[in-house]
Amino acid sequence: MRSQRPDLTAATWRKSSYSNSDGGQCVEVADGFPGVVPVRDSKRPEGAALVFGAAAWAVFVRDVR
């Protein structure tokens, strides 16, 4: 069964802490969505966001560190 996509219209987005001031290639994440982590391209904030399960996102972050 597929869950519904969260409403991201009021999301507060934050850039990666590895982002630089030159507007480099970054991702933004939105906090406050239980069980999921919305992610978008900071260069195209009007574009689509991907929504990952919180556990999958935690594994990704752990592995890229």
Rank of each mutant, 00 (worst) to 15 (best):
Gly53Asp: 15
Ala55Asn: 11
Thr9Val: 07
Arg5Gly: 00
Ser17Leu: 06
Arg2Thr: 09
Gln25Val: 02
Arg40Glu: 08
Thr12Ala: 13
Tyr18Cys: 00
Gly35Lys: 04
Pro45Lys: 12
Thr12Tyr: 08
Arg40Tyr: 11
Val61Met: 08
Ala48Trp: 07
Gly23Asn: 08
Ala49Leu: 11
Arg40Ile: 08
Asn20Ile: 00
Ala55Asp: 11
Leu50Trp: 07
Arg65Tyr: 12
Arg62Ala: 11
Gly32Ser: 07
Arg62Ile: 00
Met1Cys: 05
Val61Glu: 14
Arg14Ala: 12
Arg40Val: 08
Gly23Val: 07
Ala58Tyr: 01
Cys26Ala: 08
Val29Tyr: 02
Gly47Thr: 06
Gly47Asn: 11
Lys43Asp: 08
Phe33Ala: 11
Ala55Gly: 06
Asp22Ser: 15
Asp7Lys: 07
Gly24Leu: 00
Gly53Arg: 15
Pro6Asn: 06
Gly32Met: 04
Lys43Ala: 10
Ser19Gly: 09
Ser21Arg: 02
Asp7Gln: 06
Ala55Leu: 13
Phe52Asn: 08
Ala48Cys: 01
Gly53Ser: 13
Pro38His: 05
Pro38Cys: 08
Trp57Phe: 15
Trp57Ser: 05
Ala11Ile: 03
Tyr18Arg: 03
Ala56Phe: 13
Asp31Thr: 06
Ser17Ile: 03
Val29His: 03
Glu28Ala: 03
Ala30Asn: 13
Ala58Glu: 12
Val59Tyr: 14
Asp7Phe: 02
Gly24Cys: 05
Gly53Glu: 15
Asp63Ala: 09
Gly47Asp: 11
Val64Arg: 15
Phe33Lys: 15
Arg14Gln: 14
Val51Phe: 09
Val36Thr: 13
Gly47Phe: 01
Val36Pro: 02
Val29Lys: 03
Val36Asp: 09
Arg14Gly: 04
Ala54Met: 05
Phe33Asp: 12
Arg40Gln: 10
Val36Glu: 10
Gly32Ala: 07
